[in-house]
């Protein structure tokens, strides 16, 4: 027994599983980055699509993860593996500290505050605070993952590592959606007052969303820094945050297929049309407007009603 969606999912899984064997190195790198960006987009979706927080500074958490790995590896000579946990935990901690004081702000006020955090983050990187971040040029020469004397150096390894990370992210998304936590986020998103009246602490679950989202973005950032063996500020600036924000809304908030589609459209398609350098973003902007007009809830909107089967017996 399989419905259409799971069929599509299976086919996609197979295609993405064998993808590295059929493409050249440039497209392999695009594939890897697509997987990494999908993780970031999902983590943005936890905050934006689920908890409904207008967060437009997500590239900062992505960058924090990337820079944690880069700094630990290049400046302190630690192995990449040792940086994995900090690359997740530091963004989570920063999310907790920064989001705490602003989490009560209304939609648009919070939006500009999160843009602000992202901009401050970039200035910290560019001004090379403590001589650790490498200033505007960033940090080069990041190592590859090594385990038991084996090095996972080829781009194919990078791809499969990103593949696994996306798998873990999807698992988390699914768990979240089927837990008290994910539901609480939706209740807050749909009606804050009703949610509170049912005993949901708005502050707790918004912060929860921020912290989990930051952790996943951090992990993706670590992967990203290893893939390119370098990090620099512009990969994590507000423009990138706007891209993740847009991915979620164009694809479909809180919809797993939607976010994947969004990432594909916003990141892979521009790569395909790279040769039309100049007109590309003009068309892109038009496409964003048109998509929203034609599909205001995104290309593949979320569908609620994911409840256990035993509750569906009377449904006609």
């Amino acid at each position: 027994m399989m419905n259409k969606t799971s069929m599509i999912a299976l086919v996609l899984l197979l295609i993405s599983g064998v993808y590295p064997f059929f493409v050249d190195s440039a497209w392999l790198a695009i594939g890897t980055t697509f997987l990494v960006f999908s993780c970031v987009a999902f983590s943005q979706d936890i905050i934006l699509g689920r908890a409904g927080v207008f967060h437009m500074g997500h590239a900062m958490f992505f960058g924090l993860g990337a820079y944690t790995t880069a700094i630990m590896n290049v400046q302190f000579g630690l192995p990449i593996l040792a940086s994995w946990a900090p690359a997740v935990l530091i963004p989570m901690f920063v999310a907790f500290v920064l989001a705490g004081p602003i989490i009560h702000l209304r939609g648009d006020y919070l939006l500009v505050a999160t843009i602000g955090f992202n901009i401050i983050f970039i200035q910290v990187l560019e001004n090379d605070v403590f001589g650790l971040t490498g200033g505007p040029n960033g940090i080069f020469g990041i190592d590859v993952v090594r385990l038991f004397g084996f090095e996972f150096a080829s781009q194919t390894y990078m791809y499969y590592m990103a593949f696994i990370l996306l798998g873990i992210t999807l698992f988390i998304m699914r768990t979240l959606d089927r837990s008290k936590f994910g539901r609480a986020m939706f209740y807050i998103n749909k009606d804050e007052i009703a949610a509170q009246s049912m005993g949901v602490s708005v502050r707790y679950y918004k912060l929860y969303a921020f912290i989990i989202g930051a952790g996943i973005a951090g992990a993706a950032g670590s992967m990203f820094s290893v893939q390119y063996s370098a990090v620099s500020p512009e990969a994590f600036d507000v423009t990138q945050s706007i891209m993740f924000f847009t991915i979620v809304l164009v694809g479909g908030s809180a919809s797993l297929p939607g976010v994947l589609i969004g990432t594909f459209i916003m990141f892979v398609l521009p790569e395909v049309f790279r040769e039309f350098e100049t007109a590309r973003y003009l068309v892109f902007g038009l496409a964003m407007i048109l998509t929203m007009i034609l599909r205001p809830r995104g290309i593949w909107p979320v569908r609620f009603g994911n409840i256990p089967n035993f509750l569906k017996k009377d449904v006609k």
């Binding site: 007109a279 892109f284 038009l286």
Partner: peptide, 30 residues
């Protein structure tokens, strides 16, 4: 860019505005 989205979810219009910004900026560049 905005009138067709007046009854849509609020953030759809925000995305449309971001898109419109890209259109204007790149038109100026062209």
């Amino acid at each position: 860019a905005y009138r067709p989205l007046r009854t849509a979810p609020r953030l759809s219009a925000v995305v449309s505005a971001l898109g419109a910004g890209l259109v204007i900026q790149n038109s100026v560049m062209l």
